[in-house]
Amino acid sequence: MQKPADYKRPEVRVRYSVEEFHRLKLGYARTTCNTLGGYVRKVSLGQPVEIVHRNKSFDDFVGEIVLLRKEMAALRQDHRLSPGEQAQLVLLHQKIQTTIDKIVQLCMQMSNQAPASQKR
């Protein structure tokens, strides 16, 4: 025998302005909540929300590195570079990658020492 479906569960609908919804999504993005609805539910009920603290300058650095990598790949694909110039570019790319790997290792060590998130 099947259990009857609960079609009359309590529900709340909230309308936000575009600016308010943007602020809501920014708050949600900083949390470990899986869904926006779950975030709204926790905040509205006064339950703790786990906030992930990120390093903005490191995020900006990563963004710049991604752009640099794309530019270097585009240069390597350019047929106007001589073989010597291409080799120099590959060597520079390897040096940058080694430096990034060192930075990542330092960041990983620091994140293992300090808590990555905190309850709000």
Rank of each mutant, 00 (worst) to 15 (best):
V62W: 05
I51Q: 00
T98R: 14
K8V: 06
D78Q: 10
K95C: 10
L45F: 06
G63W: 06
P48W: 01
A116V: 11
E50S: 03
L26G: 03
A116D: 08
E11S: 11
Q118D: 07
L91D: 12
R9D: 11
K42N: 07
G63Q: 10
I96A: 04
S57I: 10
N34M: 09
Q77G: 13
F61K: 06
N112I: 05
G84A: 14
A116P: 02
I65M: 14
R15M: 09
E11T: 08
R76G: 15
D101E: 15
A29C: 07
K8R: 13
Q105M: 09
A73Q: 14
V43R: 00
E64L: 14
R69Y: 03
A73F: 08
Q86W: 05
G27C: 04
V104T: 11
P4N: 06
Q47R: 09
Q105V: 08
Q97S: 15
I96V: 13
R80N: 12
S57Q: 15
K95N: 12
S17Q: 05
H79R: 15
P83T: 08
D78G: 10
L75Q: 05
E50H: 07
L26V: 07
Q77M: 12
C107T: 07
C33K: 03
P115L: 04
S57C: 09
L92R: 10
P4S: 07
Q77Y: 09
L92P: 02
Q77A: 15
K56G: 09
R69P: 01
L89S: 02
L81H: 02
